[in-house]
């Protein structure tokens, strides 16, 4: 019979605690709109903050309560937007999927070094030392600050230049905000050809600093059949809304600084 006392004490405690907790959960009940949790489940759940809200929970709340459109989320792609729009009963709208591209090819063999950098592994810190160790003051510093903020492991460092794996990139824009040189841009994924240089130096200076810099020769501007390329402060820029992906500019560029990212996506 001795066993009954401990058994009843422990089970009595358990019962009392259980009842107390269920009572507390009734008293302190928080009403949650069930649509919020439904929308939250549909979102990618990466909590990258690309939408401008504090993670996916924040966006889900904004979609339900403030009527924000689901295309705010650049990560989920068209499927997620369609699913949420269907659920909320609003127009799907149109989104243009964007990917990040590093507009620089200044690898170790292409660009001269001003000095040996031996500091912290951070582009910001190298940038603070006379604008970095590269002779070209516009180019990629290659210390991987963008790689560290990428929530999707979509950035690799190759020969001192960041490269974006476009099939992994979701266009969240974290790297765009991080890069101290501002050479990562969000570009519509359908636009294959990009001028992969950010140097605003005059032609001769740019050529001296880097073997693959845009030297503002304007050959691409002349050869483009749809007038999609313009010179902006010694640098050719392709307007993705006019570009038809014909590829003439890539053939014309003497510096090989216009590349076709469509090929890269395939290999």
């Amino acid at each position: 019979m001795d066993i009954l006392i401990p058994v009843s004490i422990i089970s009595g405690l358990g019962l009392a605690f259980g009842l107390g907790l269920s009572y507390a959960s009734k008293v302190f009940e928080v009403k949650v709109d069930e649509r919020i949790s439904k929308v939250r489940e549909m979102l990618p759940g990466a909590n990258c903050g690309a939408c401008g809200y504090s993670g996916c929970d924040g966006l889900a709340e904004a979609i339900v309560n403030e009527g924000v459109h689901a295309s705010k989320c650049p990560v989920g792609g068209i499927e997620v937007v369609n699913a949420i729009s269907d659920y909320m009963g609003v127009d799907e709208g149109s989104i243009d999927v964007k990917v990040a591209r590093v507009l620089c090819q200044g690898t170790c063999s292409n660009v001269e070094q001003k000095y040996d950098y031996d500091g912290m592994e951070s582009c910001h810190s190298a940038n603070a030392l006379a604008g970095g160790m590269n002779a070209c003051s516009y180019g990629c510093l290659g210390l991987g600050s963008c790689k560290r903020v990428c929530p999707f492991d979509a950035i690799v460092m190759e020969e001192g230049v960041a490269r974006i794996l476009e099939d992994k990139c979701t266009g969240c824009g974290n790297c765009v905000a991080e890069c101290p040189k501002s050479i990562i841009h969000l570009i519509p994924v359908m636009s294959g050809f990009t001028v992969v240089c950010s140097s605003h130096d005059k032609g001769a200076v740019a050529r001296k600093n880097c073997k693959v810099a845009c030297i503002s020769c304007q050959k691409c501007v002349r050869v483009c059949p749809s007038q999609a390329i313009a010179m902006n402060d010694n640098l050719a820029v392709i307007d993705p809304t006019k570009c038809t992906n014909c590829g003439e500019c890539e053939k014309a560029c003497p510096q090989k600084c216009i590349t076709n990212s469509m090929h890269r996506r395939l290999d």
């Binding site: 605690f17 107390g20 907790l21 507390a24 302190f28 009940e29 928080v30």
Partner: peptide
């Protein structure tokens, strides 16, 4: 048992 209950209780109260 007591600690688990208390933590659960604190969680409910904080949430509200």
């Amino acid at each position: 048992l007591t600690i688990a209950t208390l933590v659960q209780f604190v969680e409910t109260v904080l949430k509200k």
